Computed example of a mutant assay.
Amino acid sequence: MAFFIDIIKGIFMGVANVIPGVSGGTMAVSLGIYDKFISSITGFFKDWKKSCKVLLPIVIGIGIGVIGFTYLIEYLLSQHTFVTCMTFVGLILGGLPMLYNDMRKKMVEKNKKLGIGNLIAFLLMFALVVGLPLLGVGSETSNVLEGTPLNMIILFFVGLIAAATMVIPGVSGSLVLMILGYYYGIINTIKNFLDSLKVLDINSLISGILVLAPFGIGILIGIGIIAKLIEYLFSKHSVMTYSAIFGLVLASPIAIFYNTGLYKHLGEVTFLRLIVGIILCVVGAGVTYYLGQKEV
């Protein structure tokens, strides 16, 4: 049962990573699997069997979420922006009680109290997430990226940067891709690869692999590097790290509303959409809270 619950949690993480402004790391925190996800990555070579047992269902879920939602993302954000955003706001905020309880436990364990340093860490991370979308979106690349040698090198480093941000709670990897100008190129390349797989178009599949392979390798290396850093921070500066994560998580709804352009059209939201959005927000929070309590 725990295996399938972790797959569901992984699906939420995968979906979150596809939506610009939504953080897969935040979703992992809200779902209560962040610590074990990070520790399984950093401890992979020490006990690969244990790490695989933890990572397998999560990775399967992430794959399902990314692939499945790749086809829906443009439609949902263009036709149902408000209710989609509200659902993810609920999913994110539903994990706050558990995050708070975890921080309180660490405070008791380390005999620490919240001070000015914790407030500064909170405000800095809050400002980071709110300010990141203000950097603007880079000019997009072609609809489907080509697997040229130069593109392969660039995509490796793009994957490296995006992966690092995907793991950090509150920071959206897809938003970073958008700022770098590669979001739609990657999304469309994934869709083109899946379409080619259906009809076994070998040439298109090879072209897709030449693009997605270096990007994927960059993601794996980036996750490994940042996971080591986060593990160190939790080990040596746990309460300060929790304070920073609170800032990242609480700022996420603002980033979501800004990056989707929803803030410009809030006055146009109909009463029905408002009610549906609020209901889905509450349901999303309940789902996250329930799944978080199922963490074992």
Score class of each variant (00 low, 15 high):
K9Y: 02
H237Y: 09
F45D: 10
Y184H: 15
I64K: 12
V137T: 04
F122K: 00
D201G: 07
I7H: 05
V66S: 12
T189R: 05
I256D: 07
E109H: 11
I225T: 13
T87M: 00
L56S: 15
I60Q: 07
Q79Y: 07
V22K: 08
K236Q: 10
K36L: 13
W48K: 14
L220S: 14
V269F: 03
T84Y: 06
I73T: 15
M178S: 04
Y289M: 11
I275L: 09
F12E: 08
F126K: 12
E295F: 09
V137Q: 10
G218P: 11
Y100R: 06
M107S: 05
P97N: 03
S30I: 04
A285M: 08
F44T: 15
G14W: 06
Y242K: 08
G63K: 10
G24S: 11
H237L: 03
I153Y: 04
T70R: 04
G95K: 07
G68E: 04
S23I: 04
F157D: 00
L262V: 09
L205W: 05
P214F: 02
G170W: 08
N203E: 08
K105F: 01
G292F: 06
T141S: 13
G218M: 08
D201N: 00
R104L: 12
D102N: 14
V249S: 05
L123M: 09
L280W: 02
M107W: 01
S252C: 08
L266H: 13
L55Y: 11
P214W: 00
T241H: 09
G115M: 08
Q79A: 13
V15H: 00
L72I: 10
D35S: 15
L262T: 14
V167N: 03
D102S: 07
L175F: 06
M107A: 01
I67F: 13
G43N: 15
V108G: 02
I217E: 12
V282T: 07
V54L: 14
V176H: 05
S39H: 14
I279Q: 00
A28K: 01
L99H: 00
I230D: 01
V158A: 03
I38Y: 01
I64E: 02
G208P: 01
I275N: 02
I41D: 09
